[in-house]
Design a protein around this nucleic acid. Sequence first.
DNA 1: CGAGTGATTGAGGATGCTCAAACCACGTGG
DNA 2: CCACGTGGTTTGAGCATCCTCAATCACTCG
Lengths: 238, 238
Amino acid sequence: MGCVDCPIRKLPPFRPFEPAELEFVNSFKRGELAVDRGATVLVEGNSSAHLYTVLSGWAFRYKMLEDGRRQILNYALPGDLIGLQAGLMGVMEHSIEALTPLRLCVFERSGMDELYRNYPGLAFDVTWLASREEQLLDENLLSIGRRSAIERTAYLLASLHARSVALGTAPKAVLPISQQHVADTLGFSIVHTNKTLRKLAIQGYIEWAEGGCRVVRSGALARIAHWEQVNTRKRPLI
Amino acid sequence: MGCVDCPIRKLPPFRPFEPAELEFVNSFKRGELAVDRGATVLVEGNSSAHLYTVLSGWAFRYKMLEDGRRQILNYALPGDLIGLQAGLMGVMEHSIEALTPLRLCVFERSGMDELYRNYPGLAFDVTWLASREEQLLDENLLSIGRRSAIERTAYLLASLHARSVALGTAPKAVLPISQQHVADTLGFSIVHTNKTLRKLAIQGYIEWAEGGCRVVRSGALARIAHWEQVNTRKRPLI
DNA sequence: CGAGTGATTGAGGATGCTCAAACCACGTGG
DNA sequence: CCACGTGGTTTGAGCATCCTCAATCACTCG
C-alpha cells in the first residue's frame, strides 16, 4: 500500500503532508512487516539497517540489567517511529517487543541521507519526533522518581489512555498490557502493582478486563496523578 | 568570540566541522550569556526565542510537581545543547538551572529553518544530539526504576564522572553537585541519600569534598552499578 | 555573633519487597 | 470428557528499604 492512502495518515493527531513529501516518504518505504505478539522487533546491542513506523498495534521499548531486571522505557503506538537510535548512531541501546500483533512500515536507514539533503521539512519532523519522545521520557522519569504508587499508576494509565484515544480508539477500549508490564514500567514488584491496581479498580477508576486494563474515569486518574495533558497539537507522521 | 576558535571545539569528544558549517554556525550565533550559579535559565511553560550550547559550567534540567516535589532529569555539561524542545515545539516542558556559573552560546530559534534548509549535515547533527539525550534518559530511567539505592547512586556518580573526564577535566575534579541534587536525581529523600553516599565514602569509592563529590574509584562504581560506558564516539558540537 | 546552608545521625513508622500459596481461564493431550 | 500444565491475577505474612521527624554539627557570610 502507498503512503498516500495510508489509513492512519487521516487520523486526527497527524498533520497533513505536502504531495512532494508524501511521494518521497513513499519511495523511502521498503515494505511492511508483520510481527507476532510477544516477538522482539529490535535487540539492544544489535545494529539495524531499518527504521520503522508503527502502522497498527502496540509495542514497548525496554532495557535490561544483566541479572534480568527489566525496565520498560516507553510504549509505541500507531504513528510512532521506532529504531531511530539505530538509524542515527548505528547501535540500539534498547530492545523493542510487540505487545499486540504489529504491522510496521519499514524504511531503509540509508535513505536518511537523502531525506536530510532534499527534504528539510521532513528532517525537521524527524527531529521533532525525537524531541517528543524525549518529552514523554521526561514525564516518565518525573513519575518514577517522585510520584507515589497510586499517583504513578494513575499517571501511566491516564497517559496511555490519552494516547490511545487521540488515535481515534474507543475511550472504553482495553489497554493491551499485563500487570507485569505495569510493574516493569513503574519500577514496582508484580505483587505491589497488583495491590495498587486493585485499589484503583475497587474505587471504580479502572476495570481489569480481558487481558488488559479498561480506563473508566480517565479525568479522575489524571487528577490523582497531578497530571495534565499537554501538547495535543498535530504531529508529523513519517 | 567566533566559533572557529571556540576552545571547546578542540576537546576530544567533538568531531571536526567543515569550514562552511562552522561559518554558518558562527552566523547563527547571537552572542554569549553568563548565568550565575543557582539562576534559572529556562522555565517550564515558557516559550523561548533561543537555544543554547553550554560553553562552560554545569546545569541541570528538571520538572516539578505542583506540591514542590522535584525530579532532576539530566545534567548539561559543556558542549550540550539546551532548549531544543522550545526551539522545536515552542514551549518548554521542563526548567533548567545553573549548577555552577555558566557561559552559554546563544542561538536564535528562527535560524533553525535556514539550518535545516541549507545545512543538512548540521540538521542531522541536531537530531543526533536529541537522540543522544534520549539515550541518556533511557539509562536514567533504567536506573531509577530498577537499580537499588547503592547501585543507583554508583551509576549516577560514575556516569557524571565519565562525562566530565571525557571533556578533559581532571579525573579527580569535584562534581559540582550537592546531596540534595543527588536525591532529586535518584528519587530519594535527602536523608537516605546521605546514608547511601556515606557508605560509598566509607568504602573509599568517593569523597565528599568542598561542595561536591570527588570520584576516587570510578571503575569500581561502574561495576557496582552493573554499568558499562557506551558510545564514546566523537559527537557533533553545534 | 547570629543566621543560613548543607551534611550527618538516630528513631520510629510507612511503603514496597520476597516468599508462598491459591485461583482462574485456557488450551493440550490422553 | 477430563486431567494437566501454563500464564496471569490475587491474597496473606513477615521482612527490608526508604521515609519523615527531629536534632546536631561544620562552615560561611554579613
